[in-house]
Amino acid sequence: MSRPPTFTPPPCARALQLSTGRGPFAVLDARPEGTARGTALLLPGYTGSKEDFIAMLEPLTAAGYRVVAVDGRGQYESKGPDSQEAYAQQELAADVLAQAAAAAGTPVHLVGHSLGGQIARAAVLRDPEPFLTLTLISSGPARIAPSQRERVRLLSEALELTHMDMEQVWAGIRAMDPPEETDIDGASADLHRRWIGHNPAQLLATGRQLTVEPDRVAELAAVRDLPVHVMSGERDDTWPVPLLDDMARRLGARRTVIEGAEHSPNTDQPLRTAAALGAFWAEAGRQRG
């Protein structure tokens, strides 16, 4: 579970509901002073939320970009139906296309962390036109590693077979956390509130997606004129780093490894991650120019 340093938006950002053709989505909308160099749409990972990008908002707006971090349907503060069918990957991809249209009306820089990366990829494969660039943060070519598939299986069984509620599952997760991680700068209450906000149907459906996702790298590589960026930490137990290296090679993508980070560079090393994103977007802009 990613652990953002705070759930309080910086002064550059507002928490609001983004109205789209597919319903409202909770977002953090961060804007620079003056005219923005572009707009970025940021998608969180499994069990995550828009707050996973919160420490990157100020450095990215300081670099001149507007940033819209989103709770997908059924995540934290974005409501979603109780039917697992509503969270099929193509439904979530259609949501991303609607979010991009509502946020900017012009092409955006698309960023997805972990599960969010695979949803971002599906959105690009459905229609690449709304996107200037694609950045995949700690998001691999296909299904997650065996150890993580087992974690998803245990969570799914708890929710679906034993009929534990979200409070009971939360208690079990906290009981398994290392003692030094039971509270980080008082963030436990925020993490609990986020967990309870997730719709169990969303966790079940997207967890299943993570365990069966096929390799679609060749499809993505065939998308013309879309700069792609593969980012990760130095270590990753969800998709091994050598697998991400190979994916970047197959895509002909820019590759960035964030020193001092693991599966969530956006929360582990937000300043370094923001700097790498800004550099990629600026380079893509120069190439377009």
Rank of each mutant, 00 (worst) to 15 (best):
P200H: 04
E85I: 00
F25D: 07
A86T: 00
A248D: 04
R208K: 11
E219D: 14
R193K: 13
V124S: 08
R174I: 13
P128T: 01
P179N: 14
L110N: 05
L203F: 05
A201E: 03
V124W: 07
S78D: 05
A102V: 10
T6C: 01
T20P: 13
E167V: 12
E213Q: 06
Q90V: 00
L191C: 06
P146I: 07
T61R: 07
A30S: 06
R22L: 12
E160T: 14
I184A: 13
L18N: 11
R249N: 03
G207V: 12
L155D: 01
P32T: 09
M176V: 07
A13C: 13
H113W: 14
N199D: 09
G38S: 05
L243E: 15
E234G: 01
R255V: 11
M176T: 15
Q202R: 12
D183F: 13
L203E: 13
G112N: 02
P179L: 15
A123D: 09
R255D: 01
A120K: 05
E91M: 00
A40F: 09
T211N: 04
A103M: 10
D225K: 05
D185H: 13
E213S: 12
W170N: 08
M1F: 12
A104I: 07
R255N: 11
I54S: 13
G197T: 14
I119S: 04
F53H: 10
T35W: 02
A101R: 15
F280C: 03
A40W: 06
T20E: 12
Q269F: 01
W281M: 03
H229R: 00
D127E: 15
D29M: 11
Q75I: 00
A102G: 07
G260H: 09
G285M: 01
A218R: 11
A102D: 12
A253T: 08
T162S: 15
F25S: 06
V108D: 03
T267E: 12
A26G: 10
A102S: 13
P10R: 09
T47F: 02
E181C: 05
A55Y: 10
L110C: 11
G21P: 07
F280Y: 06
R31C: 09
L125F: 08
S2W: 02
A30W: 06
P4I: 07
D71E: 07
A30P: 07
G64H: 02
P44I: 01
Y65W: 15
T61W: 04
E262A: 14
P214K: 04
K50M: 13
D246V: 03
L60M: 12
L161P: 00
L42V: 12
L28N: 11
N199F: 00
V111N: 01
A248N: 02
A205S: 11
T20L: 13
T61G: 05
Q17E: 15
V230N: 05
Y87C: 01
V111R: 02
R193C: 09
D95I: 03
R66I: 14
Q84M: 04
D82I: 00
P5C: 03
R254K: 11
L43N: 11
R66P: 08
G105P: 08
A13P: 05
H113S: 04
R235F: 07
D82F: 00
R216D: 06
G34M: 04
Q17R: 15
I184T: 14
P59G: 10
T6M: 10
E33G: 14
L110I: 08
I137R: 00
